[in-house]
Write a protein that binds this DNA or RNA. Structure first.
Length: 276
DNA sequence: GTTTAACCCTGCACGC
DNA sequence: TGCGTGCAGGGTTAAA
């Protein structure tokens, strides 16, 4: 569920609240979450005593840079979240990893569906090798209209597949891809190499605007309430969704009922009238 | 190169 | 009440 905007909201929270703090103790309650490591000890030893110096984001991955040269990489999967706690409140169900901080308090990794993961790796000059396949961030300054245009037009893929493919564009998932395509007035199955230059510009602008809007509204918290920010607050962008989850409701542009298609094993929502 | 399906997982809704 | 089934979905992988 967490996509680029939700992850960015958490990144900003962590930047405010975790940078400068030292990790005192690491508890791993579910080894599956640190599946890239052979043992809990290997994971914990790479973290204990280290100070968090910077928080970055690469697509849907959060990168906590440490003063020992390591990087703690976190992916929230579908239902993961990170909670800042004083440590006094009992850990809620599905709390799988706890990082206790030297100055008090702790960071808890909570994930009902266990698709999320944490791992520690050596930081390198040009990033983290495990994330080498993750494409440029669509909100990065270097992700220009020209770069986007080249990515889209040089492939023959359905637009939604392309938007969601982390190798080409990072951070977009099922919810935001539907919203971006609605904002651009384009159908999810349109071949990426057959857009007019006007359509291409609309798609680029829609991508930037929808993602920024998502961040501004604190991300999307659906009815399952799995997504919260670092302090447990829900997002508000679900109240601004134009198509995702809006099946049968009138399109905000043309009043035509929004349609839901089963596409692969995902749902996709669109307006059959104004998305062409 | 691109598409499709299966897999991982839990909670919930639904039908019988 | 209780059981089985299907669904939600991100990323990876294998097969088509």
């Amino acid at each position: 569920m967490p996509e680029l905007p939700e992850v960015e909201v958490i990144r900003r929270d962590l930047e405010r609240d975790a940078v400068g703090r030292r990790i005192k103790e690491v508890q791993v309650k579910l080894p599956r979450i640190i599946r890239r490591h052979k043992t809990k000890k290997e994971f914990a030893d790479a973290l204990i005593g280290a100070k968090i110096t910077r928080i970055d984001r690469r697509g849907k991955y959060i990168l906590c840079h440490l003063d020992n040269g390591n990087v703690l990489v976190m992916h929230l999967g579908m239902s993961g979240r990170i909670e800042r706690s004083t440590g006094r409140k009992a850990a809620e169900k599905h709390t799988h990893v706890v990082l206790k901080l030297q100055t008090g308090g702790e960071l808890r990794f909570i994930d009902m569906r266990q698709f999320g993961e944490l791992f520690v790796t050596a930081g390198e000059m040009d990033g983290v090798k495990e994330l080498a396949h993750i494409a440029l961030d669509p909100l990065a300054d270097s992700f220009t209209w020209q770069v986007f245009s080249e990515i889209v037009s040089s492939r023959k893929m359905k637009l939604k597949t392309l938007l969601m493919d982390q190798k080409f564009i990072s951070g977009i998932g099922n919810i935001y891809s539907d919203e971006i395509l609605w904002a651009a007035g384009l159908r999810y199955e349109r071949p990426s190499d057959q857009l007019t230059s006007q359509e291409m510009r609309r798609l680029y602008r829609a991508m930037q605007e929808v993602l920024q809007d998502g961040i501004r509204h604190g991300g999307v918290t659906l009815e399952d309430e799995t997504y919260r920010n670092l302090y447990g607050k829900q997002g508000e962008f679900q109240d601004h969704l134009k198509v995702y989850g809006q099946e049968g409701k009138p399109c905000r542009r043309c009043r035509t009922p929004i349609v839901r298609d089963r596409w692969g094993n995902r749902s996709t929502y669109y307006c059959p009238q104004c998305q062409v």
